[in-house]
Nucleic acid binder design. Structure first.
Lengths: 109, 109
DNA sequence: TCAATCTCTCAAAAGATGTTGAAATAAGGA
DNA sequence: TCCTTATTTCAACATCTTTTGAGAGATTGA
């Protein structure tokens, strides 16, 4: 992940609806969920959701595929880990020590 | 770090000048550096730098102290690790595996 | 083909953010 | 006190982002 991609990713995550969409899609797992279900979960209009989903997809944080009438969105996990990696390496220079419960798990991967 | 703080942090880091300021101040270490030196390093006007420094301070990513005529800014490392933690726990749910060289170091902390 | 469903696109309006340059504040030294 | 240095504040402007509602495109089943 380079600076430009990181800037895009941060911009994407700096918006409440979008941050929640990412969380929802991460929880939904690799299968993802249709745009309509995302909108329903957010309580937002279809055009609003479409706008934010496009934004997140442009930033590379989520991806989409058509399945019958629905368009299924899912999280792009490597993009999220890439962002974490960027923060740790390029930004924190190893000076930040996140105390994360899941840290041993993620580190063993 | 709660959602609101994370949103502020992401918004702060989504701007080129601000992202670079954070990197500069992380590299500068706990002693930090005066606003003027930050501005010179960025090649930006004083009011522009002041605007971005205030933004970062409001978000809690940097802090300031007066020292004689200068105002010294420095990185708030716990805020940065808090953001990394937020991304890993609240956002990634342990599904993202950042492959970071410094990972063992940070995990041992 | 027609109607229903799901989603996207578009343009207009509203809102938020970033930049500029001039003026104000704060501190230290002559 | 007056001058210099360091930084912030302010208002005006430009730009970017988000929301809204109406309409269009794609897909499926009758």
């Amino acid at each position: 992940m380079n600076e430009l991609q990181a800037l895009d990713a941060f911009a994407s995550l700096s918006q409440e609806t979008r941050l929640r969409i990412v969380r929802l899609l991460v929880m939904a797992g690799p299968d993802g969920m249709p745009a309509g279900a995302v909108g329903e979960a957010m309580g937002a209009s279809s055009s609003k959701i479409s706008f934010h989903l496009s934004h997140l997809e442009r930033a590379g944080l989520i991806q989409s595929r058509r399945e019958a009438r629905s368009i299924i969105y899912s999280a792009v996990y490597p993009a999220l880990s890439g962002l974490i990696e960027f923060l740790m390496k390029d930004c924190c220079q190893g000076r930040c020590d996140p105390a994360v419960d899941t840290c041993s798990e993620t580190c063993e991967a």
